[in-house]
Amino acid sequence: MRRLFLGILCLLISIFIHSSLKWELKTWITSPLPRPESALILSGEFAPLMSDFFLVKAAVFYGNAINKAPKKTLWFAKVLYLASYLDPYYFEPYWIAGVILPWEGRVKGAKVILNRGLKYLPHNWELPFYLGFISFYFEHNNSKAAHYFFQASKLPKAPSYLSLLATRLAVKGNETPVAIAFLQTQLKNVKDQGLKKRLKKRLHALEAIYFLERALNKYKRIYGNLPLRLEDLVNKHIIAKIPSDPYGGKFYLTKTGRVWSTSNLH
């Protein structure tokens, strides 16, 4: 009886200590990552399962938007690379790398992951499509973007508008509407509510920018030059008011005549 009592007491002590330990989701998610090669060897035949595990980590990280510091976004890029390295035929890590990474300032990382994906999933039109979008929107390299869009348009199940888009790009850059179309396409494929919410937020911000860009074009047509500030659009009654930035920033006109926000859309 005394032994049973001592046993229960020890168990209660350990439960009490465990409950008082601070377990932080933040530390669990962004814990140091192994080298891809070591992870592959250690997981052996269970590498695809480990790839799933690291993708769950990436999803939890992004869903919680824990930290936007450059070090954390580097971790995010690394965990996606690791997931794609452990199971190179798994589409999802490439998809997140294509749709989310560049917006987090990790254009180079996204390109590395996607280029690796081209080798393993050569019949998937979405990978060259993402690479094309990155070249176009983030690197302003229209000829390269057109090349990727053409490559994607030739693959099975590719939407018919891709070849048209490629031709249009080869002629003239029209960044914001293309980015809006890109996000709208992605929204149709997303089921996860957290991710959907974040993509929608970005879409609203881009729609506001596009609205201001059209107003600027109208101003230029009437007055022959661009205004000095966005507020001039309201003063000259071209628009009723400047739309608000869903990220909490304020839209302004850059020296190059581009509409951008103080929030950097983060």
Binding site: E45, F46, L49, D52, V56, A59, Y90, F91, D192
Partner: peptide, 22 residues
């Protein structure tokens, strides 16, 4: 368990099943 992941969760179901069998 697969519901924790995003995108094609059926792939995770298959991985767990086949790894469990192994």
């Amino acid at each position: 368990i697969a519901d924790l992941s995003i995108g094609n969760t059926l792939k995770v179901t298959q991985d767990i099943g086949l790894s469990g069998l192994s």
